[in-house]
Design a protein around this nucleic acid. Structure first.
Length: 617
DNA sequence: GCGATCAGGT
DNA sequence: CACACCTGATCGC
């Protein structure tokens, strides 16, 4: 949970994501996204009173965040004090002290954060240097290079401080399967289920929070349906989302919620109360999006885990993994990094120590200080790395090490693939940096004999085409319209007005980079009979997967949902949507006999050797 | 009655 | 395992 107190050292007159205590006296407020833990104090009576008497205090956020916020009547009093900003449009903001009239000018730029609809990072440029407040974010490897305002021409901007979402900044969370991988795995599971009959229904057991919408839009498109949800109110200005959700309970895919939802589903009733359409009982599976993470060398990394006869967990993360954060930081090379979250079991000192290695070394030889510089330096507030103000003190034009911009997007999609042995040009600075995390993941690393280097080589070999799949970070803003749309959308996405199509393309998570491997493997599929769009992003299924740990997830226990579940369970391939798995040369696909033996042993309750540890639930 | 905080749950 | 959130109990105003 965020322990950020709301203030940045450089710009203490602005408050971000905290609105209580000392933040009550801020000159301007910034809300990175609409999750409750970033809105502390935002509906407090003290702040409400302050607004009544203030002409200048504003809340800055994205258009989508504004819409989501105001869809809750408890925040309606903010209406006239919210300034929605466009993404990636630098905006001059003057902070005024209402008592003294003192003014301070800042340039603030909203950057897409990929955490939930409307989520942004704040890039602040002013007299105290350039700082980045990330809010909560999930960016894939290489995304920083595609965010224009982080650059100045061909250079990466000189960033003094990053206030970082360090939720998963711990080597234990080294990798989290990409959004695409997770989405495709979920699609596979849903496909297998809903194709069985119209009574086969999926319940997406999502938490009461924004962030699952891209799941709804993609599943909606894939299955030509709308997802049943409790309310459409918050999406009334977001046609792309609105067209994929419905309050009509006659849907095969539900994401409705009820405090006793789990009990309902165990009793073959959906949280909305629906239990049948025409008297025939529903056949429900539940899929609970959950964060799953894996160590640096972990290879068998299941994206879907079965937790009961008709319940599954599916990998889903709102936050960047350790390696994604490292990629982000090593691209930006800030001078300071301040963590906003201390992972459980860690101290602030632990995290700060870990983060030190990601900071630019200001004493490095890249900075050559002129002997006379100290004498010339008359303005004490000047920062040694402030390029614009202090470069006359130094040799050369730049104090910050030259950081060349990397354009991943420009990687030629149609030309020859990178040579297998050459690392992809993801960051200019590090490749070996990932080695300093070897202290980690003993616990997660169940790989016995595998050689890491071999694994990496295998990965890069297959990475060929996938570089060009990288897209820009998510732009939830493009979901937004100023019109208010009504609930009377057509009941099938296939009828959705073409006027929305321009919004669709750039929003879908296909655009996220998959760090890992995709193989155009014709022999492997998550499910049969799907279109070419799935074939492109096919997950690799390891040959040896079936021998062991995949089966350990076939939990024979758990609640049964009526008598009809057994013969209609999803097939093996749905249960083990592995990702990033290089094939093992000396492994083999188990034969039917081996498989049935394993099934028999599982059914008999015998131990089956597992390399993923206990996953029984 | 309201808000803040904590425990316990999903 | 975490996350984001909810409910209910308790405390203080």
């Amino acid at each position: 949970m965020s322990s950020f107190a709301g203030r940045m050292k450089e710009y203490p007159n602005m408050s971000l994501d905290r609105f209580d205590r000392e933040n009550l006296h801020a000159r301007a407020y910034f809300l990175s996204h609409c999750h409750k833990d970033h809105m502390k104090g935002l509906k407090g009576p003290l702040l409400k009173r302050k607004l009544k008497f203030s002409l200048t205090v504003k809340l800055y956020c994205s258009f989508v965040t504004k819409e989501l916020l105001l869809s809750n009547p408890k925040y309606a009093f903010w209406e006239d004090h919210i300034v929605a900003l466009e993404l990636e449009s630098p905006t001059l903001i003057t902070l005024i002290d209402e008592a003294s009239g003192e003014r301070e000018e800042l340039v603030v730029t909203l950057l897409p954060a990929g955490h939930c609809p409307g989520s942004v990072m704040f890039l602040v440029e002013g007299a105290q240097g350039t700082v980045l407040y990330t809010g909560d974010f999930r960016l894939a490897k290489g995304d920083a290079s595609r965010i224009e305002p982080l650059h100045s021409g061909s250079r990466v901007k000189d960033i003094k401080s990053v206030y970082l979402d360090s939720t998963f900044y711990d080597p234990r969370f080294y990798q989290i399967p990409s959004r695409e991988t997770c989405l495709h795995a979920i699609q596979g599971l849903v496909q297998d289920w809903v194709s069985r009959s119209v009574y086969h229904t999926v319940w997406l057991n999502c938490k009461a929070a924004y962030g699952y919408e891209y799941l709804f839009t993609n599943l909606g498109d894939e299955f030509h349906t709308q997802i049943h949800v409790n309310s459409l109110d918050m999406f009334k200005k977001m046609p792309e989302i609105l067209s994929h959700v419905t309050t009509d309970r006659a849907s095969q895919i539900h994401a409705c919620r009820h405090p006793k939802g789990e009990e309902f589903v165990a009793a073959c009733r959906l949280p909305c109360g629906s239990s049948s359409s025409d008297g025939t009982p529903l056949n429900i599976i539940s899929i609970k999006p959950s964060t799953m993470w894996f160590g640096e060398r972990t290879q068998r990394t299941k994206v879907i885990v079965r937790t009961g006869a008709s319940s599954y967990r599916a990998c889903f993360s709102f936050h960047s993994s350790y390696s994604e954060i490292k990629d982000f930081l090593s691209y930006l090379q800030p001078v300071n990094i301040y963590p906003s979250v201390v992972p459980i079991g860690r101290t602030h000192a632990d995290v700060s120590q870990l983060l030190k290695s990601m900071c630019r070394d200001v004493s490095s030889s890249a900075v050559v200080y002129r002997p006379l510089g100290a004498l010339k330096r008359t303005r004490p507030e000047q920062q040694t790395h402030d390029v614009d103000r202090a470069d006359w003190l130094f040799e050369g034009a730049d104090l910050a090490p030259v950081r060349k911009r990397v354009m991943m997007q420009e990687a030629t999609p149609t030309t020859l693939p990178n040579p297998p042995d050459e690392p992809l040009p993801l960051t200019p600075l590090i490749t070996g940096d990932y080695m300093d995390c070897t202290e980690s993941n003993d616990d997660d690393d169940e790989e016995e004999g595998r050689d890491l280097e071999e694994e990496e080589r295998g990965g890069e070999e297959r990475d060929e085409g996938s570089v060009s799949n990288s897209g820009p970070p998510p732009r939830w803003e493009e979901f937004f319209t100023t019109e208010i749309l009504t609930d009377s959308q057509p009941n099938s996405c296939s009828h959705t007005s073409p006027s929305h199509s321009t919004l669709t393309g750039s929003q879908t998570p296909e655009l996220f980079v998959d760090d890992f491997v995709k193989l155009p493997s014709p022999s492997i599929s998550l499910s049969a009979g799907r279109g070419p769009s799935q074939a492109d992003g096919m997950l690799i299924q390891s040959e040896d997967r079936c021998q062991g740990d995949a089966l350990t997830n076939l939990d024979a226990g758990g609640e049964e949902c009526g008598s009809h579940t057994h013969q209609s369970e999803p097939t093996e391939s749905q249960l083990s949507s592995d990702f990033d798995i290089p094939s093992t040369p000396d492994s083999h696909r188990p034969g039917p006999d081996e498989l049935s033996d394993l099934y028999r042993r599982l059914a008999a309750g015998e131990e089956v050797v597992t390399r993923t540890g206990s996953q029984s639930l």
